[in-house]
Computed example of a mutant assay.
Amino acid sequence: MLEKLLARLHLADPPQTPMPPADAQHALGALLVRVAKADKTYLFSEIHEIDHLLADLYALNPVEAARMRAQCEKLEAAMPDTTDLAHILKAGIRETEKEAFVRALWAVARADGVRHASERQVVALASEALGMAPERAEALRETG
Score class of each variant (00 low, 15 high):
residue 31 L to F: 05
residue 128 E to I: 04
residue 131 G to F: 10
residue 135 E to A: 14
residue 92 G to F: 08
residue 73 E to Y: 01
residue 31 L to K: 09
residue 13 D to C: 08
residue 132 M to G: 00
residue 78 A to Q: 13
residue 77 A to S: 14
residue 40 K to N: 12
residue 13 D to H: 13
residue 60 L to A: 02
residue 108 V to C: 06
residue 37 K to N: 14
residue 34 R to E: 13
residue 34 R to V: 08
residue 113 G to P: 14
residue 98 K to M: 10
residue 80 P to F: 08
residue 144 G to S: 13
residue 18 P to S: 05
residue 60 L to C: 00
residue 32 L to D: 04
residue 76 E to A: 14
residue 66 A to G: 07
residue 18 P to A: 09
residue 51 D to L: 01
residue 27 A to P: 15
residue 44 F to V: 11
residue 42 Y to T: 01
residue 125 L to P: 02
residue 10 H to I: 02
residue 117 A to Y: 03
residue 77 A to C: 05
residue 26 H to L: 09
residue 40 K to W: 09
residue 18 P to V: 08
residue 36 A to Y: 01
residue 99 E to D: 15
residue 77 A to V: 03
residue 130 L to H: 08
residue 41 T to A: 11
residue 69 R to T: 07
residue 107 A to H: 11
residue 14 P to Y: 01
residue 143 T to S: 15
residue 53 L to V: 12
residue 38 A to D: 09
residue 130 L to I: 07
residue 110 R to L: 02
residue 89 L to V: 04
residue 135 E to H: 07
residue 111 A to L: 06
residue 34 R to K: 15
residue 5 L to A: 13
residue 67 R to H: 07
residue 127 S to N: 07
residue 17 T to K: 09
residue 74 K to I: 03
residue 6 L to H: 07
residue 71 Q to E: 15
residue 86 A to N: 01
residue 47 I to V: 11
residue 66 A to N: 06
residue 104 A to G: 02
residue 131 G to Y: 12
residue 129 A to T: 07
residue 140 L to D: 03
residue 101 F to A: 00
residue 28 L to Q: 06
residue 77 A to E: 15
residue 30 A to C: 11
residue 61 N to V: 03
residue 23 D to M: 01
residue 13 D to A: 13
residue 8 R to H: 08
residue 86 A to E: 10
residue 82 T to D: 09
residue 120 R to N: 11
residue 128 E to A: 15
residue 73 E to V: 11
residue 89 L to Q: 08
residue 114 V to D: 11
residue 106 W to V: 03
residue 12 A to G: 11
